[in-house]
Design a protein around this nucleic acid. Structure first.
Length: 840
RNA sequence: GCGGACGUGGCGGAACCGGCAGACGCGGCGGACUUAGGAUCCGCUGGGGUGACCCGUGGGGGUUCGACUCCCCCCGUCCGCACCA
C-alpha cells in the first residue's frame, strides 16, 4: 500500500513546503536546546570559524548574507565531521556613522548603535546561522573597550604607542585624521571619499613599523591565505634592500644621507635632489633667487600629495653642492617635487643613466647623464641614452670597480663605504607607523592624562575603563567632541594628584577589531582581556571569511596585535588566522549593490518571500564563493524549486520507509537490482563530491550541483515504469541526501530528518561516509579517438585490460572506416577514460 | 609603469594530474497530467549542415596521439599599488 502510493508519485498529496513555519520552529528549538553553544573540551579537536563581524549600520545587506552563509556552512560541516566548533558573532560598534546620525538627526550615537544592533540581530537570527549567541559582544560596551584600553596601555608600556607631531592625513569630510591605510584610491577617505588633505598635528601612533620584518616574513607561513592578499600586504610593507650613503654639503658641512637600492651606480651620481620638506631645503635656498620657489613647492606639497604621481617633475637648484663619498666629486643639490619626505631620508642621489625618474629630471634641466653600468645595447655616452637603463650589467666609469658585475658591485661598494665610515647596508620599508588618534566622539577613549607637572601619564589599570561620557557637543569643527566636555577631561594626575586633563581624541575603530577574535574565546572574562586557557584551546581562527577590502587594513593590524601579544607571552601563536577566505561581491546589473546606485535587494525581503534556506541555497549555488555573484530572482526561484523537489521526495517516501532499517553497505549487495544499484551509485557519488568539495575548498556550487544530480537520479528511480521500491535502499539514500544537504539548508533538512522518523537534530549527526563499493560500475563506455578526434565509443567491462580495450577499439566498424588504408602506429589506452588510435 | 586575477553556450557557471568541452541551474522549445496551469513530472536545447560531416573555450603561434588545461607572443576586462629612490 505504502509502496504503491510512493510509486504513484505526485498523485499522493504531500504537505506543502512552508518555509516560514519550518524556519521559525527550528530557530526556536535550536535556541532552546543550545545546540550551537561552544564549550571548551580538550578531548575533542576544535574548529574556530569566523566571519568578519558586522558594523551595525542599520540593516543587513547581501554582502553580509553571503559572508555569514559561507561561514555557517563551514561551521556546520565541521560540526558534523566531529569538531568542537566555535562560531561567534558580535558588533564592530564604534564608528563614524553613529556620530553622523547624531549630527544629522540629533540621535544619541549609543542609542542609534544599539537599536541598529537589535534590528540586525533579529535579521541574523531569522537566517538561522549557527552562532553561539551567548558570546555576542559589541566593541562599544565598556566591558569590551575597557580591555581595548588595557591593550593600548600594554602597547604604551612596551614603547609601541607614542605621541608625535607629524604630517598626517586629514579628512575634511569626517573632520578627523586617518591612517595611511585608510587613504584609498586617488587620495580619498576610505569612508566618505573626500579628498584627503595634509596637516601637521600631534597625534598618537602605534609602532607597527617595529614589526615590519616579521609581518612580512610570516606571510610565508600562511599557506592558507590567498596569494592576492599576501601580495597586497607585501607591497604595502614594501621592503627594499640597499644602502645608506652619507654625502656632505660642501658649503655648510651638513651631513646629507640618502637611501639607494643601487649602490653600484654611485659613480653615476650627477646631482642630488631633496624633498621640498627636507629640513635642509629652506636653509640651503635661503638668500638664493630660489628661496621663494622652494617655499612654494613645500606649501604645494602639503596640500595634495596624491596628485604628484601624475604631476610633472619640477625642481629648482639650491646653489649648494654635495660631495660624493666614493669619489669626492661635488654635484649640485636640487629641490625636487618627486622626492617623498616620508620615505628613506627625504633625499635622493640623482643617477640619470640608471633611473628613469632621474633621467627625466636631468633631461629637463640639462643635468649631465653618466653611464656607469654597461650592457648590450646601452650606449656608453650619456648624451646618446634615450631612456635610463635600469638592469644589471658591468660597472664602468667607476674607478677601481670597473669591470665588476653590478650585483657584486653593490656589495663591494657598500663594503668600501662601511670601511670609510660613510655608509652601510640598509633596509627601508614603505610601511608607516599606524596613526590611531581620531577627533571623534564615538570611539574608545585613549587612556592617557596630561599633567602640567608630570607630563603624559597612562591611566592606571585599576581605573579602567575611561568611560565615554554621554551628552556631548557633536558639531564637527576640527576638534574632538570630548574637548567640549570639561566634566570628562578635567581629572587629576594619577602620579601627583594635581590637576590634569584627559586625552580627548578617541582611538581608530580598527583597534577595536584587532583583537575581537581573542575576546570571543572568553567574552565574559572580567579580570583580563581574555582567558589564556580559552585562547590556547580555540586560537588560531581556523577559517576566517570576509571581504577583500580588509586585505591591508584589519588583516594587517590584527596580525600586528597578535605578534605583540605573543611577545608579551599572552598568546601562543603569532598569527591569528590560519586560513583566510575572501568572498566576492554581490552584484545586480553587473555592479556592486549600493544605495546610491539604487540596485539593492534587501535580504529580509528575500527571506520573507522565499525563506532563509532558499536565500542561502541560491547564494551558495549561483557562483563560486570567491567570485562576484550576480543576483537573479529566477535563480532564487530555481533554488526554491530544488528544495521543494527534495521535500516532495522525502514526504512521499516517508510512509514507505517508516520503521525500515536503512540499507547498510556490504549487506547482500549482489542481491540488489540494477535500479537500486544505480540509485545508490548516484547518491554515494554525490556524497563523495560534497565531502571533497567542502573539505578541500569551499566549492559549494559544485557540491550542490552534485546533490541536484542525485535528486534527479532519485526521481528517475521513483518514476521508473516497473518494480517496487526497495525500502531499505530508499531510506539509506534519503538519509544521506538529507544529511549532505543539512549544512546548506539547515531548517528544511531538520524537518525532513524528523519526517524520516528521527529525533532532532540533524546537525548533531555525524557526517556520513560514502560507500566505495556503491561507486563501482560493471561496464563503462569509453570514447575512441583516431588521430585525435573522437570517432566512436565502445562499451567495456570496468576491469577490462589494455589489450581488451585495444581489441574492442580496433574492432569498431566506425574506427575501421577511419583507419582504412592507413597503418596503425600506436594505440594509447587510458584505462577507463579513452582509447587513442594513431595512424600518423 | 609594477603586481595580481580573469576571458568557456542566450545567462550564471562545470571540466580530476593534459584524456568525451558545456555538469548543475536559469532562460527557451516540446510532451505528459489537467477544466486550467504561472504547479508538477519527462524530453530537447553551442553554431552550421541536417545521416554518421565540419567548426567551436578572447586572438595568433608552439609542444603532444590528444590542449579550456602546458609554453611563447598579442588583445581585452577587473582589482591592488604607484615618482618609495
Amino acid at each position: 500500500m505504502a509502496a504503491d502510493e510512493a510509486r504513484s508519485g505526485e498523485s499522493v498529496e504531500v504537505r506543502p513546503y512552508d518555509p516560514q513555519a519550518i524556519e521559525a520552529r527550528w530557530q526556536r528549538e535550536w535556541e532552546a536546546r543550545g545546540i550551537y553553544r561552544a564549550v571548551e573540551d580538550p578531548s575533542r579537536p576544535k574548529y574556530y570559524a569566523l566571519g568578519m563581524f558586522p558594523y551595525p549600520s542599520g540593516r543587513l545587506h547581501m554582502g553580509h548574507l553571503r559572508n555569514y552563509t559561507l561561514v555557517d556552512v563551514v561551521a556546520r560541516f565541521a560540526r558534523m565531521r566531529g569538531y568542537n566548533v566555535l562560531n561567534p558573532t558580535g558588533w564592530d560598534a564604534f564608528g563614524l556613522p553613529a556620530e553622523n546620525a547624531a549630527i544629522q538627526h540629533g540621535r544619541d550615537p549609543a542609542e542609534w548603535t544599539y537599536s541598529n544592533i537589535a534590528v540586525m540581530r533579529g535579521q541574523l537570527k531569522r537566517l538561522g546561522f549557527s552562532y553561539d549567541w551567548s558570546r555576542e559582544l559589541a566593541t562599544s560596551d565598556p566591558e569590551y573597550y575597557r580591555w581595548t584600553q588595557w591593550l593600548f596601555l600594554l602597547m604604551y608600556r612596551r614603547g609601541l604607542a607614542y605621541r608625535a607631531e607629524a604630517r598626517v592625513n586629514w579628512c575634511p569630510g569626517c573632520q578627523t585624521v586617518l591612517a595611511n591605510e585608510q587613504v584609498v584610491g586617488d587620495g580619498e577617505c576610505w569612508r566618505c571619499h573626500s579628498k584627503v588633505e595634509q596637516r601637521r598635528l600631534r597625534q598618537w601612533f602605534l609602532r607597527i613599523t617595529a614589526y615590519a620584518d616579521r609581518l612580512l616574513k610570516d606571510l610565508d607561513r600562511l599557506p592558507g591565505w590567498p596569494e592576492r592578499v599576501k601580495v597586497m600586504q607585501r607591497n604595502w610593507i614594501g621592503r627594499s634592500e640597499g644602502a645608506e650613503v652619507h654625502f656632505r654639503v660642501q658649503e655648510t658641512g651638513d651631513d646629507l644621507p640618502v637611501f639607494t637600492t643601487r649602490p653600484d651606480t654611485l659613480f653615476g651620481v650627477t646631482y642630488m635632489v631633496i624633498s621640498p620638506q627636507h629640513p635642509l631645503a629652506a636653509r640651503l635656498a635661503a638668500g638664493t633667487p630660489y628661496e621663494q620657489a622652494v617655499a612654494e613647492m613645500a606649501r604645494g606639497l602639503a596640500l595634495r600629495e596624491h596628485e604628484l604621481a601624475e604631476a610633472e617633475k619640477v625642481g629648482v637648484p639650491t646653489g649648494a653642492h654635495a660631495i660624493n663619498p666614493i669619489n669626492g666629486e661635488a654635484v649640485p643639490i636640487w629641490v625636487g617635487n618627486y622626492v617623498v619626505m616620508e620615505y628613506g631620508t627625504g633625499a635622493v642621489m640623482g643617477v640619470p643613466a640608471h633611473d628613469q625618474r632621474d633621467f627625466e629630471f636631468a633631461r629637463k634641466y640639462g643635468l649631465p647623464v653618466r653611464v656607469v653600468i654597461a650592457a648590450d645595447g646601452v650606449p656608453l655616452e650619456g648624451e646618446r641614452l634615450e631612456a635610463a637603463y635600469e638592469g644589471p650589467g658591468t660597472m664602468v666609469h667607476s674607478g677601481p670597480f670597473d669591470g665588476m658585475p653590478s650585483e657584486e658591485g653593490k656589495r663591494a661598494i657598500v663594503a668600501e663605504l662601511e670601511r670609510r665610515g660613510v655608509g652601510r647596508a640598509s633596509v627601508q620599508y614603505r610601511l608607516r607607523d599606524w596613526l590611531i588618534s581620531r577627533q571623534r566622539y564615538w570611539g574608545c577613549p585613549i587612556p592617557i592624562v596630561y599633567c602640567q607637572r608630570c607630563g603624559e601619564q597612562p591611566v592606571p589599570e585599576e581605573q579602567l575603563p575611561v568611560l565615554l561620557p554621554p551628552q556631548v557637543e557633536f558639531a564637527p569643527r576640527g576638534q574632538a567632541p570630548l574637548a567640549t566636555a570639561p566634566e570628562f577631561y578635567h581629572t587629576t594626575c594619577p602620579r601627583c594628584g594635581g590637576p590634569a586633563v584627559r586625552e580627548t581624541d578617541t582611538m581608530d575603530t580598527f583597534i577595536d577589531s584587532s583583537w575581537y577574535f581573542l575576546r570571543f574565546c572568553s567574552p565574559r572574562e572580567d579580570r583580563r582581556p581574555f582567558d589564556p586557557r580559552a585562547v590556547r584551546y580555540w586560537m588560531p581562527v581556523d577559517h576566517y571569511i570576509g571581504g577583500i577590502e580588509h586585505a591591508v587594513l584589519h588583516l594587517l593590524y590584527s596580525r600586528f596585535f597578535m605578534k605583540v601579544l605573543y611577545d608579551e607571552g599572552l598568546v601562543e601563536q603569532e598569527e591569528p588566522f590560519q586560513r583566510l577566505f575572501t568572498q566576492g561581491m554581490v552584484t545586480l546589473g553587473g555592479a556592486a549593490m549600493s544605495k546610491s546606485r539604487g540596485n539593492v535587494v534587501d535580504p529580509d525581503e528575500v527571506v520573507s518571500r522565499y525563506g532563509a534556506d532558499t536565500a542561502r541555497l541560491f547564494i551558495l549555488f549561483a557562483a563560486p564563493p570567491d567570485r562576484d555573484l550576480e543576483w537573479s530572482t529566477a535563480g532564487v526561484e530555481g533554488a526554491l524549486r530544488f528544495i521543494q523537489r527534495v521535500w516532495r521526495l522525502v514526504e512521499s517516501y516517508a510512509p514507505l520507509v517508516a520503521g525500515v532499517e536503512p540499507y547498510r553497505p556490504g549487506q547482500d549487495g549482489a542481491l540488489l537490482g540494477p535500479d537500486e544499484r544505480a540509485l545508490r551509485r548516484a547518491v554515494h557519488q554525490a556524497l563523495k563530491k560534497v565531502t571533497v568539495d567542502c573539505q578541500e575548498q569551499l566549492a559549494f556550487n559544485t557540491a550542490i550541483a552534485a546533490l541536484m544530480e542525485a535528486v534527479n537520479a532519485f526521481y528517475r528511480y521513483k518514476d521508473r515504469p516497473a518494480g517496487r521500491p526497495h525500502a531499505a535502499v530508499v531510506r539509506e539514500c534519503l538519509e544521506i541526501l538529507v544529511l549532505a544537504l543539512a549544512p546548506f539548508i539547515p531548517h528544511v533538512t531538520e524537518s525532513m530528518w524528523e519526517s524520516l522518523g528521527h529525533q532532532p537534530s540533524v546537525h548533531q549527526q555525524p557526517w556520513p561516509a560514502y560507500d566505495p563499493q556503491a561507486l563501482q560500475v560493471e561496464r563503462l563506455t569509453v570514447p575512441v579517438q583516431v588521430d585525435g578526434k573522437v570517432r566512436d565509443r565502445v562499451e567495456l567491462p570496468a576491469d577490462a585490460g589494455e589489450e581488451e580495450a585495444r581489441q574492442a577499439a580496433l574492432a569498431s566498424p566506425r574506427v575501421q572506416r577511419w583507419i582504412e588504408g592507413r597503418t596503425v602506429r600506436q594505440v594509447i589506452v587510458v584505462p577507463g577514460r579513452l582509447i587513442s588510435v594513431v595512424t600518423r
